[in-house]
Design a protein around this nucleic acid. Structure first.
Lengths: 373, 373
DNA sequence: CTGAAAGCGCTTACAG
DNA sequence: CTGAAAGCGCTTACAG
C-alpha cells in the first residue's frame, strides 16, 4: 500500500516540492525486521525487483510517473527484503530531516535546583508537547524536545546549525531571553510561542492575555466580590505582566493589591499567605496560573477562609491542575494544545515556503466556571 | 580550542572506535553564524586554511596525528568561516547519529483521554528524562523523546529502523507490552527500565521493589500501626505487583486489605475513599506511589481522620509530589534520576561495544521520613 | 516511463 | 604527517 504524504494530511492538491513526501511507503516497510541482521540497501531492493535504483526511489517517494506493474513489483521487493530507507543518506540530498525541535527555554531562577524536573512536570509544557506531537504525527515528522536554560544556549544553536532538524518551535516566555533572536539570526524556519520582547520578524502564536484577565475580573465582580486582589506571574515575563495589567484595567479604579508569584504551586501558596496577612478582607482573588492557584487554595483554606463563600478564587490556564484543586478551580482557559498545533502548522508552512512572511495568530481565552468562584 | 570527547567525559584512556568523538571542536564552531547565509562546506574551510579536506576532517575529529601549526591554521579557518559539520553526511559514513531515543511506552487505559498529557505531567517520567539528559550531556548526545501507546508501536519501530538514533532507552512497565521484544529483535542497542516480563537478553535497571515495600511495612509497624492496608499500583505492572507482594510478605500473617490503584492522584483519592468505607479502622496505609498518596491523603483527611495520628500514610517514589502533600509525605525513595543515568551509561557502553553481554543493575530504595507517617 | 550518472558532504583506508 | 580517492546510501536532473 502506498500512502502519499502531502502538506495536508489528507490533501489532494499538489504540495510544494519542499514538503513533498520523503518516504511515501509507510506501512509496508514498517516493522518487518531485515533479513540478515543488516538492513538491506536500495540497490538490493532494485536487484530483487529487477529494476534500477532510481525506480525504487520513485515508488518509495510516490512519484506519479511509475508504471503500475513495476510499482507493484517494487513494493513486493520492499516488503520481501524488509527495506527501510536510510535517513541520513536521504537527508544529505533532500536537506530535509523530517524532524523539528521543540526548544523550551527557561531562565535559571534562584533556588531552581531542578530545572529539567520542573519543565517536565509543569502541565503547561505537557500540553504544548501533546499539541505539537499530535499535529505533527500525520506528517510523520518527529519532535526533538530540547529543554534549555541560559547556560547552554550555545549547545542548542550548534545543534540547530548542524542540521538535525528542519525547523524549531521555540517556547520562550522570559523577556530578556536572547534565544529567539539567536534562532532567528540562524535563518532556520522557526515559530515562537508568544510575541517576542525584541521585535524580530518571526511568526508567533499567542493568547489574548489581557482579555483573559478581564474575563476573570468581570466574573469576580459579577459574583459580588468587591475587595479584589491578584497573585501575578513573574513580571519579567510578558504573560505575567499582561495578566496583571489586564486585571487592573478591568476593575477600573478599584485598588487591587498584588503580589508577584513564580508560576509554581509552592509559590502560589506562599504568596497567598502573605497577601492575606496584609489584606485579610480580600474576597476575590485572581491567580495568574492554575498551578499557583492550587497552592493558593491550600493557603486560603488553611487560614480558615471558605472558598468561594469567603474568598472566591479564579485561576488561569485550565490545565489538569485545575481539576486537582479543592474546590474544583474556576479558571480562564487558554487552548494550549490548539496553540501548539497551530505553531506546528505554521512551522510546516514556513519550511515548505521559506520566503513566507511571518504572521501571528491570537487565540481567545474563555471562562470555565467550576466551584472556586 | 580542541575538546576531546571520549567514553568518559573527562577520560584520558583511548575510547573504542565506536565511541570516538565525531565532532571534537565544539566551542569554536558553536554560535557564530555562517557568512553568506549558507553554511560553509568542509572544502571551503580546507581552501581557506590551504590544506586538504582530509586534514580539516582530522582536526575536527581530534585525530592526534595533526601537526600543531596546521591544526592551528585549520582552527582559525573554522572560526573564520563559522563552519559546522553537516550531521547527515557524517552519519552516512560513521553510522553514528549521536542521538538516542527515550521511548516511553504506556498502554492505553480506559478513560485515558490524554495519554500525552499524562506522560508529560507525571513526575516519574520527568525524573527519567532529567536523569538521562543530564547523563548524556557530557557526551554531547541528544535525547529524542518518543511517547507511544500500543496504537503506534509500528511508528516507533520504523523510526528506529530508519537509523535516526544509535540506541534506545525503553521505559516500559506494562507486563504485556510487546515493545521490548520488538526493539530487541531489531538488534539495535537498547536498555530497558525494568526486568522485562518476557525474558529477553536485554540490559535493564531496576529498584528493589520488594525491599521498598518492606521498608514501608516495617516503618508502619514500628510506629505502632496494627491495622494496615495498602493501595497498590496496577497489578499488570510488575512494579505494582511486587510492591503489593513485598508489603504482604513483610507484615507476616497480618491480614492486609488492598485495593488496586492506577498511579494517578484521582485514582489514589478514589481508592482511599473506598478502602476506608470498607475498613474504617485502618491506622496505617501504604500507597504504592506518591501521586496516589497525594489523592489518598486528601480523601483520608476529608473523611475526618488526622494524619498521621489516626491514619499514618506512607508513599513510594519520593518524587516532587511528596512535597506537595499535606502533611509532607513520608515515602520510599527510588533514585529515579540515578537509575536513568545508569541506563544511559549502559546504553553508551553497548553502543561502543555491540557484543557486550546484557546485565542488570539494581538500586536500593530508602525510607524518607517526613510528617505523614 | 525508466536508467545511467552525478552529486549531496562527509570519513577513512591507502599511499607517499 | 598529509593528500587523492573511494565510498557511505540515497535523489534527481538529464537523456532516451
Amino acid at each position: 500500500m502506498v500512502v502519499r504524504r502531502d502538506l495536508k494530511p489528507q490533501g489532494r492538491g499538489s504540495a510544494s516540492p519542499a514538503l513533498r513526501p520523503s518516504g511515501a511507503i509507510t506501512d509496508a516497510m514498517s516493522s518487518r525486521p531485515p533479513r540478515g541482521g543488516q538492513n538491506p540497501t536500495m540497490d538490493q531492493v532494485a536487484e530483487a525487483a529487477g529494476v534500477s535504483r532510481a525506480t525504487v526511489s520513485r515508488v518509495i517517494n510516490g512519484a506519479p510517473s511509475v508504471d503500475a506493474k513495476i510499482r507493484e513489483m517494487v513494493e513486493r521487493a520492499i516488503a520481501d527484503t524488509g527495506y527501510v530507507p536510510n535517513v541520513a543518506a536521504r537527508t544529505l540530498v533532500t536537506r530535509r530531516t523530517n524532524s523539528v525541535a521543540l526548544v523550551i527555554s527557561e531562565p535559571e531562577r534562584p533556588n531552581d535546583t531542578s530545572f529539567l524536573n520542573r519543565v517536565f512536570t509543569d502541565p503547561y509544557f505537557g500540553r504544548i508537547t501533546a499539541g505539537a506531537t499530535t499535529a505533527l504525527r500525520p506528517y510523520d515528522i518527529h519532535l526533538v524536545i530540547i529543554p534549555t536554560d541560559s547556560g547552554d544556549h550555545h549547545h542548542v544553536i550548534r545543534y540547530l546549525r548542524q542540521g538535525h532538524v528542519d525547523g524549531v518551535l521555540l517556547i520562550s516566555s522570559h523577556e530578556q531571553d536572547p534565544l529567539p533572536r539567536q534562532v532567528h539570526d540562524l535563518g532556520i524556519p522557526a515559530v515562537v510561542s508568544a510575541r517576542p520582547a525584541q521585535p524580530i520578524a518571526a511568526s508567533f502564536v499567542d493568547v489574548d492575555q489581557r482579555l483573559g484577565a478581564r474575563l476573570a475580573a468581570e466574573h469576580l465582580l459579577a459574583r459580588g466580590c468587591r475587595r479584589l486582589a491578584t497573585i501575578s506571574g513573574p513580571l519579567d515575563i510578558p504573560a505575567g505582566m499582561d495578566r496583571l495589567e489586564g486585571f487592573r484595567a478591568a476593575v477600573k479604579g478599584r485598588h487591587v493589591p498584588s503580589i508577584e508569584g513564580d508560576f509554581t504551586r509552592a509559590g502560589g501558596e506562599e504568596c497567598a499567605r502573605r497577601l492575606l496577612a496584609d489584606h485579610p478582607d480580600v474576597d476575590g482573588l485572581f491567580v495568574a496560573s492554575d498551578l499557583m492557584s492550587e497552592g493558593a487554595l491550600r493557603a486560603v483554606q488553611d487560614l480558615g477562609h471558605r472558598v468561594p463563600e469567603d474568598v472566591a478564587v479564579i485561576g488561569f490556564d485550565d490545565s489538569s491542575a485545575a481539576l486537582e484543586c479543592r474546590p474544583l478551580l474556576t479558571t480562564i482557559r487558554q487552548p494550549v494544545e490548539e496553540m501548539a498545533a497551530e505553531m506546528a502548522e505554521m512551522l510546516l508552512a514556513q519550511i515548505a515556503a521559506p520566503g513566507r512572511l511571518p504572521r501571528s495568530v491570537t487565540f481567545q481565552p474563555t471562562l470555565v466556571i467550576r466551584d472556586s468562584a
